[in-house]
Simulated scan of single mutants.
Amino acid sequence: MEKNNHTITEFILVGFTTDPVMQLVLFVVFLGVYSGTVIGNTTLMVLICKDSRLHTPMYFFIGNLSFLDLWYSSVYTPKILLTCVSEEKTISFAGCAAQFFFSGGLGYSECYLLAAMAYDRYMAISKPLLYSQAMSIKLCAFFVAASYLGGFINCSIITKRIFTMNFCNDNVIDDFFCDLLPLVKLACGRKEGYQALMYFLLASNVITPAMLILASYLFIITTILRIRSTQGRLKAFSTCSSHLISVTLYYGSILYIYSRPRSSYSSDRDKIVSTFYTVVFPMLNPMIYSLRNKDVKEALNKLFK
Rank of each mutant, 00 (worst) to 15 (best):
Met1Asp: 08
Lys3Gln: 10
Thr9Glu: 09
Glu10Val: 02
Phe11Asn: 05
Ile12His: 09
Gly15Arg: 05
Gln23Glu: 04
Gln23Met: 10
Val25Ser: 06
Val29His: 07
Phe30Ala: 10
Tyr34Cys: 02
Gly36Ser: 02
Gly36Cys: 00
Val38Gly: 04
Asn41Cys: 04
Thr42Leu: 10
Leu47Ile: 05
Lys50Arg: 12
Asp51Ala: 10
Leu54Val: 07
Thr56His: 03
Thr56Trp: 03
Pro57His: 14
Met58Leu: 05
Ile62His: 13
Leu65Met: 00
Phe67Glu: 11
Leu68Ala: 08
Asp69Thr: 08
Trp71Glu: 03
Tyr72Phe: 14
Tyr72Gln: 14
Ser73Met: 05
Ser74Gln: 04
Ser74Ala: 15
Val75Cys: 14
Tyr76Pro: 01
Thr77Gln: 14
Lys79Asn: 07
Leu81Ser: 01
Thr83Gly: 14
Thr90Gln: 02
Thr90Met: 14
Thr90Phe: 05
Ser92Met: 10
Ser92Trp: 09
Gly95Phe: 06
Gly95Ala: 15
Cys96Arg: 14
Ala97Asn: 06
Ala98Cys: 11
Phe102Gln: 11
Phe102Asn: 00
Phe102Tyr: 08
Ser109Gly: 08
Leu113Ile: 09
Leu113Asp: 03
Leu114Val: 09
Ala115Val: 12
Ala116Lys: 13
Asp120Val: 10
Arg121Cys: 03
Ile125Gln: 12
Ile125Lys: 13
Ser126Cys: 03
Ser126Leu: 12
Lys127Tyr: 09
Pro128Leu: 04
Leu129Asp: 14
Leu129His: 12
Leu130His: 06
Tyr131Gly: 07
Ala134Val: 13
Lys138Asn: 15
Cys140Phe: 01
Cys140Gln: 08
Ala141Thr: 15
Ser147Trp: 12
Ile153Tyr: 11
Thr159Gln: 06
Arg161Trp: 14
Phe163Lys: 02
Phe163Thr: 00
Met165Tyr: 03
Asn166Tyr: 04
Asn169Leu: 08
Asp170Lys: 09
Phe176Met: 01
Asp179Arg: 11
Pro182His: 02
Leu183Phe: 10
Val184Gly: 01
Leu186Trp: 09
Ala187Met: 07
Gly189Met: 04
Lys191Tyr: 02
Tyr194Val: 15
Gln195Lys: 02
Leu197Arg: 06
Leu197Cys: 05
Met198Asn: 05
Met198Cys: 13
Phe200Gln: 07
Thr208His: 06
Ala210Phe: 12
Met211Cys: 15
Leu214Glu: 00
Ala215Met: 06
Leu218Ala: 06
Ile220Phe: 08
Ile220Val: 15
Ile224Pro: 09
Ile224Arg: 09
Arg226Thr: 06
Ser229Val: 04
Thr230Met: 08
Thr230Asp: 09
Arg233Ala: 09
Leu234Gly: 03
Lys235Pro: 01
Ser238Gly: 02
Cys240Trp: 03
Ser241Arg: 13
His243Ser: 15
Ser246Cys: 11
Val247Gly: 05
Val247Ile: 04
Thr248Lys: 00
Tyr250Thr: 02
Tyr251Glu: 01
Ile254Phe: 09
Tyr258Gly: 14
Ser259Val: 13
Arg262Cys: 03
Ser264Gln: 11
Arg269Asp: 10
Ile272Lys: 11
Val273Asp: 10
Phe276Ser: 15
Val279Asn: 13
Met283Asn: 02
Pro286Glu: 00
Met287Asn: 12
Tyr289Ala: 07
Ser290Trp: 04
Asn293Gln: 10
Asp295Ala: 01
Leu300Met: 15
Lys302Glu: 12
